[in-house]
Design a protein around this nucleic acid. Structure first.
Lengths: 216, 216, 216, 216
DNA sequence: AGCTAATCGAGACGGTACGTCCTGTCTTATC
DNA sequence: GATAAGACAGGACGTACCGTCTCGATTAGCT
């Protein structure tokens, strides 16, 4: 007997076809990768999936929503953080995994399309933050807190700002394409963030910074 | 007598109206800020500017191009780098100026709209890189090189990656809105980038990093 | 035990629900009267009847068929021809009954909807002719024949044309609405048809007509 | 200089293309005749005319409106009433012209489509009455009045009812198709209406009818 | 002053995609 | 087996913009 996942009530009527759902998400993903954001119209998605437009609208409110779900499907990035590794190593793994996802899978173009949509569609923006960014930021925050606890990282880090120091450069290059996005860049970003770009500890700049920091 | 700027030949016929050009750019900017990317249709821009659509197409190839020019007009950010200041101070000024531009002027929404368009329009992407990012990156690179020369910054910096370390977090927050974009954040980003997020110099992590670096 | 009406064999499975049949016909009729032809979609009929769309399609091939049956149900016009009355009186009863049906019952709007459907659906058209027009024309033809036999009516009547002379004006007003459709109109139509609109018998026009007729 | 027909003001903008207008009306007419009412969708009309759908909607509010105008175009029935002819002859010409129009030109199917639309679209219904029926009824009324004046027709005719006596049978057959619609039928209708279907003047029925009439 | 030519407003036009609605078919579980 | 519920492919609806086009009106330099 069919039962509804959420409520447990027996379902009525014809159940949703998982096959079509997959076909729609695949079509959306393919189109976005082939022709960019512009090619992935709802009409084209439905046509390519061999599905009526109404079926698409039945389950997703907008193209962005389809894209998001298609993205999540294809972005099943299965990086596992090394156990008991130093913080720098974990951050490196995280940053490299992000770059690898964006460059070696369909996820890159999809993320670009999603980010574009998010600029004019608050719902997409929110979904992107909540469903994509948040979990990754949470993992990263945990790595940072653990590193702080173990004395590998400064004790006074601003955690959100530090996360952005790692991810910001990656998304910046993804979206603007002004410089190549590759794993070496991810590693360099983490290394520079860890060690600082300032000259060794005794520099006056650093002293100032430390002073200010202690004042806060 | 009217003369053509480029050729110096005397122009024939009615000259282009600078008043309309300004009106179009203003209308485009206003619409993007009011209703976001979606509201700024070519039709709406022309209507608001009190201008025929053909006039807009005569001078700009696409909505993105109008937006870019409107953006440049409003983003006349007049930050002046302090003379002979330490590198950290200069970077701070640069980062804070960017945040201030995006949060205290129309440029923020405009940049978001442009970045979105750039994801599907290569011409916009290129124009954005060449006309907006490049000059700012050039200035920043010069600051970095000067800091390296003066011994304030590490001698082995990857300059493009370092620029992204400063700007990346700012654009990341602008485009995704997951955390507030304010001047304090810009300052913290620069400070953490300078000093590094790792614990003081003698940490083993840092040593490893340095070792690796020397190996490269 | 349920048995099939036609064969007498015991039926298998759940027997057809007469209750639903009635509900469907009622819903169809109501909708056509409320919102006209446009409102009576199959979907709306099924929903209002509390019935699955498939159930409707199971028993009727098209909306027009449902409408027709609903119409027949509501158009149970129980006029009884007066016994041994003069032809004119019988025709008057027939015409007035038609007008009364169309104006004082739901049958008017239903007939309008059916006639509209019949213009593009040959099956509806045929059903309308066979199930609705034919029996009424047959009764009317009999009245005419009887009148001719009794010498009340001309002996050389073209019976179908004469029937149309009585009914045509009624349906014309029903479908075009250019003039009010009421019982007085029905009576006047019959009276004028009987007596002729020409001036009394000795007019030259009449003579010509008779001459021509005799030639045929 | 282009001027607006109605106001005489100089027109602004690109003037309406008469060529497309003709193409749209032609396409609509063709489709209605080929595939009946159902085939003439707005989409098909636009496609066949090689025109954008918006262009059709710009000038006509609905398919029915296009159909009406297309009908009027093709129904340029140029019957001329004979001068000083007897009323019966004039009515015969009128009725035969109607039948001829409906059977020998595209106007028949078009009128059927229009009449169908009119059942659910009050605007079509009104337009049909005002633009099509009214002028023809006016001409016919004039014929009747002239006939009454000359003593060829009864002096106490109900003019609208008499007009329906002539046209009603024709439209009845056109729309229901229960009997053939041909010129002989039109002639017979007029002849029977003129002479009356009752037996010659001395019939008791007629006497009754006359009595009643004189009472009114 | 008249001529020539480019720009301008207005807006008609062929298209494309939108998001909605209904059709007629189908696939479930229930009765 | 008949049903309700409702998912589904398909297709037309009427709308909004797109980018192009064709008008008359305007505004300059050139003759």
């Amino acid at each position: 007997m069919e039962t509804d996942e959420a409520t447990g009530h027996p379902t009525r009527g014809r159940p949703r076809s998982e096959k079509r759902k997959a076909a729609i998400l695949a079509a959306a993903g393919d189109l976005m990768m082939e022709g960019g954001l512009k090619a992935a119209t709802m009409e084209a998605i439905a046509a390519r999936a061999g599905v009526g437009k109404a079926t698409v609208y039945k389950w997703w409110p907008s193209r962005g929503a389809v894209a998001l779900e298609g993205f999540m499907l294809r972005a099943a990035d299965s990086w596992t953080l090394p156990e008991n590794a130093p913080a720098e190593e974990s951050l490196r793994v995280i940053a490299v995994a992000a770059v690898r996802l964006f460059t070696r899978s369909p996820a890159g173009p999809l993320m670009r399309a999603l980010a574009a949509d998010a600029q004019s569609d608050p719902e997409i923006a929110q979904a992107l933050r909540e469903q994509w960014l948040s979990p990754r930021r949470a993992v990263t925050a945990e790595v940072l807190r653990e590193g702080m606890r173990r004395g590998e990282l400064r004790a006074d880090l601003d955690i959100p700002a530090t996360i952005d120091l790692i991810f910001g450069p990656v998304y910046f290059r993804l979206l603007f394409g002004h410089e190549p996005l590759d794993e070496a860049f991810a590693e360099r970003t983490v290394r520079q963030a860890m060690a600082g770009i300032g000259a060794d500890g005794n520099s006056p700049v650093r002293a100032v910074a430390q002073t200010e920091r202690s004042v806060q």
